[in-house]
Design a protein around this nucleic acid. Structure first.
Lengths: 391, 391
DNA sequence: GTCCTTTCCTTCACTATGTCAACTAAAGAG
DNA sequence: CTCTTTAGTTGACATAGTGAAGGAAAGGAC
């Protein structure tokens, strides 16, 4: 058995070694010859690149040869993803969620802590507590934090966050100083999308969108294998996107916008108010629909219509072959799917290819897991990110 | 005066030399120090990279020094774009348009030829004629051809083109054999967008969309300085994108779709049919609107509304700071702008930044010029494209 | 078994590209 | 006139990749 401490950190690798690690993480065991084809290098280069990785124990050569067709079988190289740990944190309304995941995005541990206020010190303190709790066994290579709001891919500063009331807070540096772990920030929808792409239902797809439904409506887009950051971090502002000329008002007073049909609040109030039950919850709403209640059926039909229209717009504009649905409001899918499919078919351009619409049920952990994946990707970007700033 | 024949072709350059040429074409005269900063290389490297380019006459050192602030002034390097010629061709309904442009995208000559049928031989023959006519003075470095339909960035084969009725036609190879000029194919909207980005109103913008209005409705998207090809070449299928719950039917029988409001045909028929004037043209429609005709005013108002909704959707989904309007139907802008602006404001997500909407008046040449720009970009991509196949 | 073919992988000499450190060069500021 | 700042060059060196040549490991033909 090899000593674990000797394995080098992913962040310390050269650019070609990173490319090899990325390929191995993405596509399992691969022979040198296969890697050479994928990375568009010569076989000679792959011998050279993989040697130090094998020597350091970062990758291993499997004994069972990979025999396909005739000719000498390739020696499969593997990377033991479980030896590289990352922590992901998602900051929400009143809570901070965190997970520890390996390089393959598998969750090893999760935890959460309440957020009593949004003062800098409180939030940083709670994140640090959470990280220390999760970091326990073995070294952690990087920490990713997902926050609502506009930030670039691999950001270091919260520039302006309406929800937290923050302005120019160097959160990554503060967390690095407190934890000693290299830290990146990312938009939460972007992080979720990265998680879906790296090790969720988006794995292997080079182009897709993630549409989330819950407290709000969110969007993440992957084009040509890259998660879109948006020019100003502002991708997917479709919460108040108009979906119908009629319909209810949203909380901002817009008629017929996506939020007015799709958020948990819109659904519970849409059903609860006409029935005089102001504190109706989603489960009750589902039950009412199953019992054939007229109001519930109409509200879910409208939600399905809104969802179908949003998907059609995405596909018409971007030509996406797949759309993944996620978020804690996804439970309604069973009730809205027929109407969603109908609206999608109706609004899709006749020349566009019908996308596959894939539901992805997940809890709040998935947002944190996405942040962990972002941290891992950060360690593997080319060109390498600047090293941890001196504390 | 230097002998022109000695200048090396752009396609023969190494990858760093290409990067220098791209930067000089994009941002005019730049000193070595400035190039080093932009390309993220050391000053020493730039001395080394630029030396053979200067020796070969491909770039020149300007005499007037570039004096900013204190310190030694930089020696501006320029690339004489006019010494590199490209031909762009756009294949449309009954005609083939072509232009000869320089590396900066400036049109030097243009011509067009009728297309009596869409047989392979006929189309290839007409393109070859056009190219020979335009290629006259000096050598041409590459030929770009823009066609409607789905193709990748820098394609070589028309895989399936409903309009031409073609299937798996190796058009690039055929044209290379007939003309001896390296040839690329590209989607027409993609080519137009490349032209706008390289040397049109999109110059300097890293994120924008081009929305075209005319016979149909087209879309091109630039994100992070890259023209989007779309996963299957299918970006911007918004011709039949639903814009309103009510409104006229389009030619495919869809109610309220973009085509039903915005195409030239939709406008002339929308005004002409109620007035009993079946052969009404756009000019007459404009005049009617200026005279205050009720029908014309309503049709243009609806068109403005449709345009505003499309722009809002684009901006909501992608966070684009700018949208450029083009196409031969753009003449209507004056008549539709108030309503367009209103619809844009109404449908834009309150959290999104209002984009600048820039009209770009242009003729059919602009589509061909885009194809020439694609040819130039093809010569400058990194990694280099495979060289001209042996004929 | 003994070839032969195919594919994988390595070695080695070589090229391309880019860097650092030390230097010269040209301007403005005091 | 010297100091500072910025630009550009030089030469020794580093890094990453390649092609050509050959060894290694399988299956197939005989």
């Amino acid at each position: 058995m090899q000593r674990r401490a000797e394995i080098p950190a992913l962040g310390s690798l050269g650019s070609s070694a990173r490319a090899v690690v990325r390929a191995l993480l993405l596509a399992g065991p691969l022979s040198r010859a296969e890697l050479a084809r994928r990375l568009e290098r010569s076989p000679a280069s792959l011998t050279k690149i993989t040697r130090p990785l094998l020597d350091s124990g970062l990758i291993q050569e499997e004994t069972a040869p990979l025999s396909e067709s005739r000719g000498r079988p390739g020696a499969p190289l593997t990377l033991d993803a479980s030896r590289h740990r990352f922590i992901g944190v998602k900051v929400t309304a009143g809570e901070v969620y965190g997970v520890r995941a390996d390089a393959a995005g598998r969750v090893e541990a999760s935890a959460h802590r309440p957020l009593v206020d949004v003062k800098q010190g409180t939030v940083v303190g709670q994140i640090v507590h959470l990280v220390k709790e999760l970091a326990e066994p073995g070294p952690v290579q990087a920490l990713g934090v997902g926050l609502a709001g506009q930030m670039s891919r691999f950001d270091r500063t919260v520039r302006s966050n309406a929800y937290l009331g923050w302005d120019e807070v160097p959160l990554a540096r503060l967390l690095e100083q407190a934890t000693g772990i290299p830290t990146v920030l990312s938009g939460d929808a972007r992080a979720l999308t990265a998680g879906v792409q790296w090790s969720g239902p988006g794995r292997g797809l080079s182009d897709f969108a993630v549409l989330t439904v819950g407290v709000g409506v969110g969007l993440g887009i992957v084009l040509e294998d890259r998660v879109l950051a948006g020019p100003t971090g502002k991708v997917g502002m479709l919460g108040h996107h108009r979906v119908s000329d009629s319909g209810p008002l949203c909380t901002n007073g817009h008629r017929g916008c996506a939020s007015a049909f799709l958020t948990t609040d819109a659904i519970t109030r849409g059903i609860g108010v006409p029935l005089g039950r102001t504190d109706l919850d989603l489960e009750t709403a589902f039950r009412l629909a199953e019992e054939g209640d007229d109001v519930a059926l109409r509200v879910f039909a409208d939600a399905g219509h809104a969802l179908g229209v949003l998907i059609a717009e995405l596909v018409n504009i971007l030509g996406l072959p797949a759309v993944i649905l996620a978020g804690d409001g996804l439970g309604m899918l069973a009730h809205v799917r027929p109407r969603m499919d109908a609206a999608l078919a109706e609004h899709l351009d006749p020349n566009a290819t019908t996308p596959s619409v894939v539901p992805f049920t997940s809890g709040f952990d998935e947002w944190a897991r996405g942040a962990a994946v972002v941290a891992c990707q950060w360690m593997l970007v080319d060109p390498p990110s600047p090293a941890l700033e001196p504390a």
